[in-house]
């Protein structure tokens, strides 16, 4: 069974919600990134989204843009992101979702990325600028491998399209909480709740909510609305703002525990 499916099945049985953590691969460098990821997985993260740095991250806000730039400057690339995934897989069973823009995957070769991602122990791919209409070639390349192509739904997505997205979704559906890029602005919980209820009613797969979740109280408010929450910029920001020599894995782990506590407090069985 695919590790993502296994994780959501176990969580549902325990009446718990998933904490999905995004981290940019190789931020601030390969070794530190690996240490952060390992600690995150040991601190309550249920699914890791490993972000492949890209020169032109149009869907991301300033925090993840800067992380991409740091990682690229440190020599990160798609092939090294795969090596990082493989290194993480050596020590953890946490599902890994390779989170990327389409161009690095396309340029690398879709058959090649499918094969190498599978052998690195990747369980899902989420391509932010690849709507289902353009995803045929990648879906074909992944066919027969245990890698889900994760789809996204947005607040602007209308019901008929939500149904279409949900029908072909694999793993979980990533529900974008609000318009805009990653990591900016506050959240209107009521509005997120309304849209999440609609999406949940139309989607047979687990639904996880992301964009703009930064604190334990966001996690507390949003976790009950879906099957999990996704946190990215709030973790990446810790790496950006930490003073030199700081214990980055420790800082990220503390934030993850804050979010986990917020979620668990509102979702006790």
């Amino acid at each position: 069974m695919n590790r993502i499916d296994l994780t959501f099945t176990k969580l549902a049985a325990a009446n718990r919600k998933a904490l999905v953590a995004y981290l940019t691969a190789g931020d601030p460098d390969f070794d530190t990134s690996l240490a952060i990821l390992r600690t995150a997985c040991a601190s309550g993260v249920d699914v890791v989204e490993l972000g492949v740095p890209f020169s032109d991250p149009t869907c991301d806000g300033p925090v993840i843009q800067a992380a991409s730039e740091r990682a690229l400057r440190a020599g990160m690339s798609l092939s090294r992101s795969l090596r990082l995934a493989a290194a993480l897989r050596e020590t953890v069973e946490t599902p890994i979702v390779l989170f990327s823009y389409y161009n690095p995957l396309f340029k690398y070769g879709l058959a090649r990325i499918a094969e190498e991602a599978a052998s690195a122990g990747v369980d899902g791919m989420l391509v932010v600028d690849l709507p289902p209409e353009e995803a045929g070639p990648l879906a074909d390349a992944l066919a027969g491998r245990s890698i889900h192509l994760i789809r996204l739904a947005a607040p602007t997505t209308r019901p008929d399209r939500i149904r279409m997205l949900a029908d072909g979704a694999g793993g979980f559906l990533y529900l974008i909480s609000r318009t805009g890029v990653t990591g900016t602005g506050g959240l209107d919980y009521d509005e997120v709740a309304r849209h999440a209820a609609l999406v949940k009613s139309l989607c047979p797969h687990p639904v996880c909510i992301g964009f703009g979740i930064s604190h334990g109280n966001d996690a507390h408010a949003l976790a009950p609305l879906a099957d999990g929450i996704i946190v990215g910029s709030a973790l990446v920001r810790l790496i950006a703002e930490a003073p030199a020599g700081a214990d980055l894995p420790g800082l990220v782990a503390a934030k993850i525990r804050e979010l986990r506590d917020g979620m668990d407090a509102s979702c006790v069985s």
């Binding site: 149009t58 209409e133 789809r151 947005a154 974008i176």
Partner: peptide, 11 residues
């Protein structure tokens, strides 16, 4: 084609 995030599809 249309290689954009889902949020822009409706627009």
């Amino acid at each position: 084609g249309r290689y954009v995030g889902e949020t822009l599809i409706a627009a």
